[in-house]
Design a protein around this nucleic acid. Sequence first.
DNA 1: TCCGAGATTCACT
DNA 2: GTGAATCTCGGAG
Length: 191
Amino acid sequence: MKLNQSFFEKDTLIVAKELIGKILTYKSEKGTIKGIINETEAYTEEDEACHTFGGKKTKRNQTMFCKGGHLYIYFTYGMYHCSNIVTEKEGRGCAVLIRSVIPIAGIEIMKKNRNHKKENPKDLSNGPAKVCMAYGWDKNHNGIDTTKKDSQIYIEDLEYIPENITQTQRIGISKAKELDWRFKCDKFNKK
DNA sequence: TCCGAGATTCACT
DNA sequence: GTGAATCTCGGAG
């Protein structure tokens, strides 16, 4: 089942937690890529580490102010992209960062996108920049509405049940590190 | 196996 | 001009 807009319009922390175990799907020209989301991070306007801290709107972060369910891809460290799903209502600059997915379909495409540097599926997409590389996303995919009927990118619920979600501090940032807004799960049970 | 440094482009100040 | 929600590789232990 494809997730609709109302799923993403809830509180960012709730969405971040509920996204664990959902399937990130991309119907590319090369084929369909699917992965179980197993690590996320929440970012809100009130969060100092967030691009939209204080509700400031810029050219870069304008996608985060869109309606829930939009894809926000941003460029960082001169070489990498990270992917987020916009949450809450239009005008609120909140999003959930996809930190990691477990590949379940289109693994060959993902390997190709990663230049066959890693052959182990577990290493294909276990990091925010790696997820973008494996899916072949860049800033051209920024602002896509994943809840649209004919969207090539969407999130669906294939009823993978997370066994134990752990909530920890975020990493890779310099501000507001003390917030336990990172959700992770290593084991899933198929319903 | 672990840790430190380099890579390298964009947006904001 | 500066620093960023990161990854990878190479060298040391």
